[in-house]
Design a protein around this nucleic acid. Structure first.
Length: 520
DNA sequence: TTCCGACAGTGGGGTCGCAAT
DNA sequence: ATTGCGACCCCACTATCGGAA
């Protein structure tokens, strides 16, 4: 199949907002790829889902500036394109950047304008066609003539879409496709997509939001402690242990202490879901930045400077028994039996006051919050279902908008991303970060007008403002920063509302912000 | 007919490793 | 030694479509 066929399909997908129409386009091109064989299905399904097959190519958005002019006529096959990226991904060592850029230039020179557009989207990870993995799975289902939930479940258990698309579209009939898809089962050593949580502002709301608890009053819910670390999925088969991140990256080699901890558990085969984080001598959590540093490094000396401790909150398999479809309360009974020293603290209660009390006590202990879970829910791999709802404390500040950046994509033409400053009692403002979150379209339109009134300079990307507009900001906490002059940055800042009832002179001060930093 | 679940998009700060400067 | 880039940890929130109710 030609890359041009994929580029054409992507453009047509982007051109409509109807998901059904997008799906129809995807179905058509998937069927044509299937006629060209499984290799083309593998590549085309990846590209339609917005990804390259190579996880890391060494190319990014920046590298793609200054590519050659497009070719007049299409000639590239998807197989040639995949081979070109595989070559680039394999380059390493001195001179590799130059060689990689050369290879990219050769590829782009052979690509037409719409093919170049597709390639840029794939390399940058921003295809912006309004369809990614989920819609692609629907299209695979329709193209293969099987129910969408069968394809979805296969993809969740496979931890990826490509192999599922190849299996479904390589089958000679819908019933053969179904058989091929049913062969994707939980396999020890192959990661599944992790179950995700919705969020709620407080514990009572979270309980009310919970699905699967029925409408009877006083149904017990599970209230798990939410730890501020990195998500881990650990597979054990005898002495063989593998550790995967939330995006299913294999990080086994970086976390020997987790491997050792799981090897010591009383089970032969295991699949566990949990969180790993750095603790201090008293067992209190260290700041997330330390956990991130420890888990990202491959340097042995750096790794020795801190230890990650695993805590598990779910078990998907133990000694030949799959537990995905078992209710949470049964999975937890098994978890407590096989992972006792490394289980997340929880309470199970039907009393909202007890649930709220647990939230307060874990936050006081320095933890991130809680996850409220329906006790009868299965493990829904890959879903952000209403069976798990997280609750974290929220802080707010009244800050001043110092500048604003132009938006892109659907925010093109608006002033979007605002720079946030706290008042300095000595004069001026101290920038603490930026945010684009929490804005409605109406707010975007309003602020685009408002900030033009306050404009003092415009470099074509960032508009500098007179510091007059006050905005109420919610955030999760403060972190150390080398980027900002106050040495502090807001974590997960989002706009709650603009405050026209306050002047900049009444905004919160940097001293107030510093007082929020927990003593270490 | 209205409601709501799921999805895609729009970016945020920080960390590391690596190659180029 | 420093800098810039790419990759990947953590992530909140809104708009939209289309099936469910």
């Amino acid at each position: 199949m030609l890359l041009d066929d994929v580029a054409d399909a992507s453009a047509r997908v982007a051109a409509t907002r109807s998901r059904l129409a997008k799906r129809a386009v995807l179905v058509d091109v998937l069927r044509r790829a299937a006629a060209d064989g499984p290799d083309d299905v593998a590549i085309v399904s990846r590209y339609l889902g917005g990804e390259l097959r190579q996880r890391r190519t060494g190319l990014g958005w920046r590298s793609l500036t200054g590519m050659p002019l497009p070719a007049d006529a299409p000639s590239l096959t998807v197989g040639e394109v995949d081979a070109a990226f595989a070559h680039m991904a394999g380059l390493s060592g001195s001179g590799s950047s130059t060689a990689r850029l050369e290879a990219a230039r050769a590829l782009f020179a052979a690509a037409t304008e719409r093919e170049q557009h597709l390639l840029r989207g794939l390399v940058s990870g921003e295809l912006r066609q309004g369809a990614l993995d989920a819609l692609l799975l629907d299209a695979v289902a329709e193209a293969a003539g099987v129910p969408a939930d069968v394809v979805r479940r296969a993809a969740m258990l496979a931890g990826e879409t490509e192999a599922v698309a190849v299996a479904a579209l390589g089958a000679s009939s819908p019933s053969a496709a179904r058989t091929a898809l049913d062969a994707f089962t939980l396999t020890v050593g192959r990661p599944v997509r992790p179950m995700l949580a919705q969020s709620a502002p407080d514990v009572p709301t979270a309980v009310a939001q919970l699905a699967g608890t029925g409408d009877a009053p006083a149904v017990p819910v599970v209230v798990d402690t939410k730890l501020d670390g990195i998500r881990i999925q650990v597979h054990r088969d005898g002495d063989e242990v593998r550790v995967y991140t939330r995006s299913l990256d294999d990080v086994t080699a970086r976390v020997p202490e987790i491997v050792a901890a799981v090897r010591a558990l009383p089970a032969h085969t295991l699949v566990l879901d949990g969180e790993a984080l750095a603790l201090d001598a008293e067992g209190r959590p260290r700041p997330f930045q330390e956990t991130a540093s420890r888990s990202a490094t491959r340097d042995a000396d750096l790794a020795a400077s801190a230890t990650l401790t695993p805590f598990f909150f779910d078990v998907l398999h133990v000694d030949g028994h799959d537990l995905l479809d078992a209710p949470l309360r049964e999975r937890l009974a098994v978890l407590d039996r096989v992972a006792a020293p490394h289980v997340v603290q929880r309470v199970v209660t039907s009393d909202p006051a007890v649930a709220a009390g647990h939230f307060r006590s874990v936050v006081a202990a320095g933890q991130e919050g809680v996850v409220v879970k329906a006790a009868d829910a299965p493990y829904e791999a890959g879903r952000r279902g209403a069976a798990w709802v997280k609750v974290k404390p929220r802080h707010t500040l009244d800050l001043v908008v110092l500048a604003v950046e132009r938006g892109s994509g659907r925010r093109a033409g608006t002033l979007s991303n605002i720079h946030l400053g706290a008042r300095d009692p000595a004069g001026g403002f101290v920038m603490l970060g930026k945010t684009f979150k929490g804005m409605t379209d109406e707010m975007l339109a309003w602020q685009t007008r408002r900030f033009r009134e306050l404009e003092v300079a415009d470099d074509g990307w960032t508009v500098t403002l007179r510091p007059e507009q006050v905005v109420e900001i919610a955030f999760d906490g403060l972190q150390r920063s080398t980027r900002y002059p106050g040495g502090l940055a807001l974590r997960f800042a989002r706009v709650l509302r603009y405050r026209d009832d306050k002047s900049a002179a009444e905004a919160d001060t940097i001293d107030t912000v510093r007082a929020l930093v927990a003593p270490t």
